[in-house]
């Protein structure tokens, strides 16, 4: 009861109140830059609750999804390899930290030069930005296996696949998933930016087109849409994380 109250009811009411405040305060706005919420919502309905959704939003989601997938596969694979070879750390850690510290937007211009302006470039940049937090989290996750546990596995003759399944994976999954959660917003930023630079569709392209042609209600409607998609995806990732943890993590059932 209390959980329902503070988990659902209170946040919903507060959100409604904020939206209501926005509605009232902006109702009589004549500013070109801050149109009334009414106009933004009607633009939202026209732009996104229509067939345009498929042509503008799906390409963006597809790029984020594929980029994240590549980032996860590469990050977990390479991270697990680096994590299990303890001696590799001093050789690769500084480079990894350097790559992670690079602002992802910064690698856009060189990637455009190398990969062109198509989907390959966008997906590549998204993957290249999302991979670092996942990779580093995986290294930590694999590393966090207790030495005693490793000894136990070896003494009792567990083959490496058993040690991976029953000892490394359960320890690493929560770490890996926190890396995925950190990577998702980065992937989003890079998706919008790469579409903003050069594209023929996608949310970033839409924002760029509408803002440069002063269709600001349309532009704001895309911003609202981005926020909503972000909330939905973050929730999905959190739910998936709990599922994974249930399957492989501390509370797994077998």
């Amino acid at each position: 009861m209390k959980r329902l109250m503070y988990g659902v009811v209170v946040p919903a009411l507060v959100t409604l109140a904020v939206a209501g405040l926005w509605w009232v305060l902006s109702a009589s706005s004549t500013s070109l830059f801050f149109p009334p919420l009414r106009d933004i919502l009607s633009a939202f309905a026209t732009n996104w609750l229509s067939a345009d959704f498929a042509s503008m939003v799906l390409p963006s989601l597809w790029r984020v999804g594929l980029g994240m997938l590549i980032g996860i596969v590469a990050g977990v694979g390479v991270g697990a390899a680096i994590g299990s070879v303890r001696r590799a750390e001093p050789y690769v850690k500084p480079q990894l930290e350097f790559m992670r510290a690079l602002p992802p937007i910064l690698i856009l211009p060189p990637m455009i030069l190398v990969l062109g302006t198509g989907d390959g470039m966008k997906i590549g940049v998204i993957a290249a930005s999302a991979v670092w937090p996942i990779l580093l989290a995986t290294v930590d996750g694999v590393r966090s296996l207790e030495p005693v546990r490793d000894d136990m596995g070896r003494v009792f003759g567990l083959p490496w696949r058993a040690r991976f399944r029953w000892m490394i994976l359960p320890t690493a999954v929560p770490h890996i998933w926190s890396g995925v959660r950190a990577a998702l917003p980065i992937a989003f930023v890079v998706m919008v930016a790469s579409e903003y630079y050069s594209s023929v569709n996608g949310i970033g392209y839409f924002v760029s087109q509408t803002s440069t042609s002063f269709r600001l209600a349309d532009m704001w409607s895309a911003v609202v849409l981005l926020g909503l998609i972000g909330v939905v995806l973050n929730t999905l990732v959190a739910v998936a994380g709990r599922r994974l943890d249930k399957k492989f993590g501390e509370n797994a059932h077998d």
Binding site: V148, R149, M152, P170
Partner: peptide, 21 residues
């Protein structure tokens, strides 16, 4: 390497057991 004729009981039982099993 660890022979399969050997059993070991560790001091640190909470870590030598797997909490998810």
């Amino acid at each position: 390497g660890p022979p399969d004729t050997l059993g070991l009981v560790f001091q640190d039982y909470s870590r030598s057991l797997l909490p998810w099993l």
